[in-house]
Write a protein that binds this DNA or RNA. Structure first.
Lengths: 140, 140
DNA sequence: CCATTTATTAGACAAAGTCCAATCTTTAGT
DNA sequence: ACTAAAGATTGGACTTTGTCTAATAAATGG
């Protein structure tokens, strides 16, 4: 009874659990993200999904990613000024961002404590805390 | 002897101190950013600078912002998937980001401690640490 | 004041993402 | 299983942010 195998069938279940109608395209997109547990951009996802024969349009990729985001199935990572990355890991965590390769590495948020943050502005509520550590190779 | 007044003349000096040739357009752009001490996007800066009579082209705005960034006069803030904000404050600090208004509020980094971050990947060096607290109005 | 370097510019271009109306799928009810 | 209604997908036009280029303008140092 292995919990963590990312088959297309499991993707369908995962989508249903999140109240999303599992269509072909949605299953493929979910499989692309969860199957490799990587941070991918929309165009990378489209490339993966359309690897052999084209099956999914640009509009559907964007529609689907936004849908997944709304249903808290994935998360956006905003670190690159030119493209958004999508993260299949929704548990609280932070990121190393490799400025040379645009690669992201997860940092579990449980291990990290942040102290001394000022009070939120009046009437405001926290939606999320992102810590991004921008790294590059070499000790200059 | 007031240190912190942001006149156009002071902008010229500031640019020279950073090894930047102070031209008309560069002074205006610096004045727009430092004069109001706000986080502005490229198009907002262009709007400010060309308020009355158009004087500065889009290409120059982008050229100049990138030049300022290279000379560490300003900093990019990447929080919004669709546009970069430019920050005249280069001292280490973090941000509240108002998701409703796209407004940024500085958080002095001196007050904040971050503990428990894992070791950097081998051969990597930190270029910067960004903490972004995404906030929105109302206590749901 | 001239020559050379340095900046600025308009407009073409590129890439990411959105929007729309037409078409195709899926679902639910019978 | 059949059909109507709802939901999903599509190509392509469009928008926005940002880059590039080749031509022009401005500043600088003799």
């Amino acid at each position: 009874m292995e919990k963590q195998s990312y088959t297309r069938d499991n993707m369908a279940d995962l989508l249903r659990e999140h109240g999303i109608n599992p269509t072909h395209q949605r299953i493929e997109i979910a499989y692309a993200l969860f199957g490799r547990q990587e941070h991918l951009s929309a165009d990378q996802i489209m490339a993966v999904v359309n690897d052999r024969h084209s099956e999914t349009s640009k509009a559907t990729v964007y529609n689907t990613l936004n849908l997944f985001k709304q249903h808290q199935l994935i998360r956006e990572v905003i670190v690159d000024p030119s493209k958004v990355f999508y993260d299949p890991n929704t548990s609280p965590h932070h990121h190393f961002f490799n400025l040379e390769t645009s690669e992201l590495i997860d940092i579990d948020a449980d291990a990290v404590q942040i102290q001394g943050l000022p009070q939120l502005p009046e009437g405001m509520v926290t939606e999320g805390v992102d810590v991004i550590i921008r790294i590059r190779p070499g000790n200059h």
